[in-house]
């Protein structure tokens, strides 16, 4: 029997706003499968986003959903989680939202190791505003504001997250649809701040400026560059040139923020009221 996505979709809220060929829908489906696998209770799950194409995702999901301001998802979500630590809090958003305007909130959520899961759809571009370069647009690639090629170096989101203190960091791609839910399941189960970067495609504003002739070509590129961490162990640096590691990249157990704050409450002699 086909998987019933509708049970987590808000009635009447589809179709979504995403362009044909955009991978965000694939990620949303993966997220729904993950939620189902974990049996997440809708009333006890908050989905929080910022601004951008990917940030429209919460509106489609039948949970407590919070579509905040540009870049602020992690900070809003921190407030929700602190107030109600028993809730499952999932953040979704894009590369510009999360690593440019929201970069500060992102790294500090990583540093606190607060128990939330951040799904970043990295399509290398500001899609909603029409294709300006983001912190993850590759060097010399074209965007509407880099007509002569992007002079900026780019962020590696996973490395950024690990460096900032996230205790679970994984990467998948919109091509490897079946892996997405598995990574998200593991991320949500992890106690601490977990980041799942999904390499995504934006045929409308990124692909056509960068010589991708079709969505299939963009998807094939994701397929070609992705190397599972296990497989990479057996490959030489030369073979790994231009490749991107996928799977669970980093995992460690460290004190979680809300639990640490609970200890503060205990040290202060307070009880929950």
């Amino acid at each position: 029997m086909a998987f019933d996505y509708e049970k987590y979709i808000r009635p009447g809220k589809l179709p979504h706003i995403w362009c044909p060929g955009c991978g965000h829908g694939i990620v949303m489906k993966g997220m729904i499968r993950a939620m189902d696998t974990l049996g997440l209770e809708k009333n006890n799950t908050a989905i929080v986003s910022g601004i951008g194409c990917a940030s429209r995702l919460p509106g489609y999901i039948d949970c407590c959903t919070l579509h905040t301001a540009h870049g602020r998802a992690a900070a809003f979500a921190t407030g929700v989680k602190m107030a109600k630590p028993e809730m499952t809090v999932i953040l979704v958003g894009g590369d510009g939202d999360g690593t440019a305007i929201g970069g500060n909130h992102f790294i500090h959520a990583c540093r606190r190791n607060i128990d939330m899961t951040y799904i970043i759809m990295n399509n290398y571009i500001y899609g909603m505003t029409g294709g300006q370069f983001s912190p993850t647009t590759p060097h010399m690639h074209k965007a509407s504001t880099t007509p002569y090629g992007n002079p900026d170096p780019s962020f590696d989101i996973a490395k950024l997250a690990i460096g900032a203190g996230a205790t679970f960091v994984a990467r998948g791609t919109a091509f490897h649809a079946n892996q997405i839910d598995k990574l998200i399941v593991e991320a949500i189960q992890h106690k601490g701040f977990s980041v799942v970067e999904i390499l995504d495609d934006c045929p409308t504003t990124y692909g056509r400026r960068n010589k991708f002739k079709s969505v299939i070509e963009m998807m094939n590129r994701l397929k070609e560059v992705a190397v599972p961490v296990k497989a990479a162990e057996k490959m030489s640096p030369e073979q790994l040139q231009g490749k991107v590691l996928t799977g669970v990249l980093y995992k460690e157990d460290k004190p979680e923020y809300c639990s640490e704050y609970q200890k503060v409450i205990e040290r202060a002699g307070g009880g929950a009221r």
Binding site: R72, G79, A83, I107, Y261, A272
Partner: peptide, 29 residues
């Protein structure tokens, strides 16, 4: 605040503080 089981958080910046405030308020605080 911790004495009464309340929550105090020092955020990374003023905007983040306002965001956390709104998130906390939406969660009933």
């Amino acid at each position: 605040l911790p004495k009464i089981g309340g929550k105090f958080i020092q955020m990374e910046d003023e905007i983040g503080a306002m965001a956390a405030l709104l998130g906390g308020a939406l969660a009933g605080s």
